[in-house]
Amino acid sequence: MSDRLAQVEALRKSRPRSRLIRWSAMLAVVCSVLVWLTSDISLADMFSTKRLGHLDRFITNDMLPAKLRGDAFTWGGLGDWCGEQFQLNGARAMLATLCISVLAIVLAAVAGAMLGAFGARNLMSAHPFLPHATVGHGDCSHWLDRVAQFTRLICILLRAVPEYIWAYLLLAMLGTSAWPAVLALAIHNAGILGRLAGETIENLPSQPLRALSMAGGTRRDVAVVGVFPMALGRYLLYFFYRFETCVREATVLGMLGVVSLGYYVIEARAHGQYSTMLFLIFLGGLLVMLADIVSDVARRWLQKGI
């Protein structure tokens, strides 16, 4: 019995361990504790008496539409008011947000597919998929390897800057239309989808691609006939996964002055109509949940077969 226990102990001791993981975890814990102890961030301050007074006034007064405050409140009245608001700006805001995100994610998907193809190291090597070409080893000095490296760098730059900042910069350049929002979302997501597409291509089973290559297919032939259809299924899953984030992000880009939901939210806030603001935020939440369901259903449908 003790022999068995010793074996178990030996097995436990020989488990793979990584110093990097342990140090990272420790650093994460220490940093979290330090941030709460030393910085000016305090959740207690959020609930100080002054702020609670604020909150109290907001809930009893500002939160409700003017004609429903105090004794005048009825649920029916609130329902009517919501209907009015929905017809006034709500429906338009939701539709614009949806259109922005759909157009943006499609542009991002096209750009991301290109970036992915040019960033995939197995496709962009001197002898794609041929037996003596091994990814990540050996000679990486061919100019095509440089192309792949450069493309990956571009992807990183595109996705490192948040959508909101892209939109802010583009708005100053292009003026007020929906383009800044669409392009901002498209740029950021192209960076993300480009990386995901590149990883997908690199992880494809190499045998069929090698067969095409050895049968005399050029790089372009292999890419169009082999890589594209093989990677498409997974890429579409990523597409829908990014679509829901895109809708979520599109709701706020309007705050910069583009006609998405955020624009009407900011408008309402500027006029002190907090009830309208809250209702529009609620509509935004509904839209995101809908997009969530659509993307979930689409992904499941795709996974069932080609």
């Binding site: 910085s39 000016d40 961030i41 305090s42 959740l43 301050d45 959020m46 002054k50 702020r51 604020h54 909150l55 907001f58 809930i59 500002d62 909101y164 979520r248 992000e249 709701t251 706020v252 705050m255 955020g262 939210v265 806030r269 907090y274 603001m277 809250l278 935020i281 935004g284 939440g285 509904l286 995101v288 949940m289 969530d292």
Partner: peptide, 29 residues
């Protein structure tokens, strides 16, 4: 969980600004 995810952090920040005023905790939350 779905409800928590559905509202963007910037919209939540607006709500906290309106209800509690500006404080670092609002951004964090």
């Amino acid at each position: 969980i779905a409800a928590m995810r559905s509202v963007h952090e910037l919209l939540l920040a607006l709500v906290f600004l309106a209800t509690l005023g500006i404080t670092p905790g609002a951004a964090v939350l």
